[in-house]
């Protein structure tokens, strides 16, 4: 059996006496697009933060390609091939769009903490960054400060930064939050394109996006996963219907 890209075993997290994540077991295979859905306050973002080392877990294990991530800082986890975006846009707003992408290429191209290389002299860096900008359709914006981009463009840039480092496990936290319909369609196409042959894990509220993009869906309710499976199985699951999806799907129509 192949090692799953990401595996959670009995993951728990408490803040004080409140248990937010109450024992999550989940296995996500390679090149799978996996969406995590659930009502507000279910702990989706907390789950993301636990996986990416932003918070330490109370108990349980997170394995990336079979390696236990316990005690690792975000930058160490990132170097092992996991990259994430944030629910609230998290870019370097004072730097240019080009510079944002170039920074995200530095580590993966092996520049580390070097102070004997000039970044502008590296053709790989410049071309690599332009290629990413091409993919996220921001080539014409390359020299603008990232902070002046429109919201949708900033979200696209955030996805660009997330994928640029070449991580094979991509985690996106509500990539379409706060977007109009046309912007959402644009971002969905973008995500589909850039996560080709990569493992994608995303939290998303928009059911259209979830059912359009995901190979598998997990439903998180009050810190527990109540169902995991193919979209049609999850849709048909009576527990899910009762807890969440019925209401959510009705709201869509």
């Amino acid at each position: 059996m192949t090692v799953p890209a990401l595996q959670l075993e009995g993951l728990r997290k408490s803040f004080g006496k409140t248990e937010i994540i109450r024992g999550v077991d989940l296995s996500i295979g390679r090149s799978e697009r996996h969406a995590i859905i659930g009502p507000n306050g279910a702990g989706k973002s907390t789950l993301f933060n636990l996986i990416t080392g932003r918070f330490p877990q109370t108990s349980g294990k997170v394995r990336l390609h079979g390696h236990d991530l316990a005690g690792m800082a975000p930058f160490e986890i990132n170097r092992r091939g996991l990259s994430r975006s944030f629910q609230i846009t998290n870019i370097f707003s004072n730097m240019t769009v080009f510079e944002n992408v170039r920074c995200s290429l530095l580590w993966s191209q092996g520049y580390k903490y070097s102070f004997w290389n000039m970044v502008s002299r590296s053709r790989e860096l410049t071309e690599g960054a332009m290629e990413i900008l091409e993919q996220i359709n921001l080539t014409s914006r390359a020299q603008l400060p990232a902070g002046v981009l429109s919201y949708a463009e900033q979200r696209a840039l955030e996805i660009g930064i997330t994928i640029a480092g070449g991580a094979d496990v991509i985690m996106l936290d509500e990539p379409t939050a706060g977007m109009s319909h046309s912007e959402t369609d644009y971002i969905v196409e973008l995500i589909r394109k850039v996560t080709e042959n990569k493992t994608l894990i995303m939290v998303e509220h928009d059911m259209g996006v979830v059912f359009g993009l995901a190979d598998y869906i997990s439903v998180l309710v009050y810190g527990e996963i109540i169902a995991t499976g193919r979209p049609e199985e999850v849709r048909a699951n009576p527990k899910v219907q009762e807890a969440y999806l019925g209401a959510a799907l009705e709201a869509e129509h």
Partner: peptide, 14 residues
Amino acid sequence: NAVRDNPERAEFLG
């Protein structure tokens, strides 16, 4: 510069 602007994001870039 990246760390100055957004240390958290920089950490998630390795």
